[in-house]
Design a protein around this nucleic acid. Sequence first.
DNA 1: GAAATCATTTGCCATATGGCAAAAAGCGTT
DNA 2: AACGCTTTTTGCCATATGGCAAATGATTTC
Lengths: 189, 189
Amino acid sequence: MQEFLSYLLQFGSLNQQQIDLISKKATSLKLSKDDYFWEAGKMVRQIGFLTEGVIRICYYNNKAEEITRYFIDENHLILAGDDIDEHYIPSVYLQAITDCHLVVFSKKDWKEINDTIIGWENIVQKITAKTHREKIERRSELISQDATERYLDFINKYPALLNRVPLAYIASYLGITQSSLSRIRKNIR
Amino acid sequence: MQEFLSYLLQFGSLNQQQIDLISKKATSLKLSKDDYFWEAGKMVRQIGFLTEGVIRICYYNNKAEEITRYFIDENHLILAGDDIDEHYIPSVYLQAITDCHLVVFSKKDWKEINDTIIGWENIVQKITAKTHREKIERRSELISQDATERYLDFINKYPALLNRVPLAYIASYLGITQSSLSRIRKNIR
DNA sequence: GAAATCATTTGCCATATGGCAAAAAGCGTT
DNA sequence: AACGCTTTTTGCCATATGGCAAATGATTTC
């Protein structure tokens, strides 16, 4: 919980009363490896802040291939859409890659926090904007690099993920096949 | 000018006085094909709303290759960074692909509008968030498609750009060479 | 610690894309 | 119509990546 509060305080200030409200509404959730936090097509029930573990965002394309689009690791907030969207239904899966710990809020409580704390919306907007920028930054270079450059970039930027994420997911994230990635790793050695 | 006001009103409401202020501060700018609106490394002087023409966002990678990252067409706002960042210096070039008309604001006037109109920040935030989502959406699928799929996708989503953007820029945007794209077009016919 | 399961590497060959330079096509100017 | 300029296509061959199946290596389970 403390991690989540520190995270929030990076984006705006909160008084003790507000912190108490947030703490009171928070519950904790453990996911086992391969569990889903959200599923495509099913209404989101909880907002979560990941305190331990790695989650991936994935989906199936029109050839029924499973594509991993992003990884989420510790100390990141998982938000429904961009605003507090009551009826948000994701089109992607959020799946635990490792066992995970999260601080979670029901949508109802999240809404209550939003309605009670002045400035909360602003904090959430800042978090959303930062998350967007990171996504854009992460993915925008990929297309103009060859697979080796993409992989080298990946291990530079996300060394912590390297040993916790199966090769197949990294390959999919980088837009190549697992065997190609395996060969690339051999060449780099 | 009217286009810009309609655009703004999609994101929030403005009274007549506010509209007058915005109109008073707006000036118009014409760019000829190949002119730059922003240059990497040079402080941004103006915020612009594109009313006619196409602009591309491009940069040079570490192999001195010119990469086109996005296209901007009519009725889109070109913002400095995400907030009104006084000292924003872009790392990319914004170059007119065709002759362009813009409604522009000096940074000083833009700031004055921001300080005067209550709710302006909120409007800008919404525009920023929408722009972000579009960028993410545009680029995130690219990596897991082959070049033909990427091109077909492009002509589906941006048919209006097809005949106004030189092939070389589209190829760069799609992460392939111009000759590969030319061959792909031959195969599609 | 053997068996079962899952993750990674490898071999073999097919296909996609790149690199470079020349040819062809398109376009505005005279 | 002829010229110069830019854009697009093509030829030839090299390299990168994919597809599939088998082999190896790592991890979990009993």
